[in-house]
Amino acid sequence: MGAELGKYKSCVSARSTDKELLKCAQDGGIVSSLFAFALDEGIIDGAIVAATKEFAAKNPSKVILDSTNFDMIEPWRPIPAIVNTKAELLAAAGTKYNISPNVALLKEATRSFGLDKVGIVGTPCQMQAVRKAQLYPIGMRDVGASIALAVGIFCMENFPYQSILQLVEDHAAMKLESVKKMEIGKGKFWVYGKRGQVVQLPLKVTHKYEQPGCHVCLDYVANLGDISTGSVGSPDGWSTVFVRSKIGDSVWAKAMAAGVFETQPIEKVKPGLELVSKLANEKITKNKATLEARKTFGVGKALRNPYI
């Protein structure tokens, strides 16, 4: 196990000690608990998270709905939102499985939302975007120093909204509004209905619906988050957590001291880091091959490589 897991200071398997929060959480409730704790402690004064239409209807001042006709927003379409309280966090919790353009709110969070210390959660590519914005703040005036906590989530690939629609409504034959939770795990795409029904789709079916832009990504475990987390590697209901930066280390230590999480050594849990490492390597190898194939995509003509 090496570079595929990125730089990190510590790694544990963890879950929130907040039972109420765990009910709304995707796995171990890491992101929601961390942000709730950081809000309480004043480490952040707001966080950018992925919410939904229901959240936006109840909290119109927490989102920016540009030209979109509100009635046209479908269930499970993620809407980036600024949350300032635990109740708002819980209302937005859970994985949406189609990308929420959270970075779109990053500048506005420090402007009309008035945040001095911003929390943001995002996929590995969004963590890359955040760090690039700090080092090369070309269109991000006075934003970099306001980013107080960036939490990355593990990501194999993502789906456009229409793909989720097609997977759930055509393949799983469920109405999107009747879905309680979606999950990828144990080699399957799981759709849980509000009435208790469960449909599983083999990943072979989902592959062709993936976002093409994800296929050049070389980061599985959000190497550039202050803290990164995901279910892979830990038992059901727990999450694997990498603490990566100085900021991450400080926030995590404070949260542990406050009893926000219970943890187990990652070496003691099944399937453990080996699986994380295996999946990370799979993603990186597959996507390096895609980048390689792009070099000779045409006849003497290459597709663009974004990496310098």
Partner: peptide
């Protein structure tokens, strides 16, 4: 070029709010 993954960075970077995210 098949490289966009919809992170939203461009929206924040635009000084004249000319960019919105439509379906990712």
């Amino acid at each position: 070029q098949g490289l966009c993954m919809g992170c939203g960075t461009c929206v924040a970077a635009c000084p004249v709010n000319a960019i919105t995210m439509e379906y990712g």
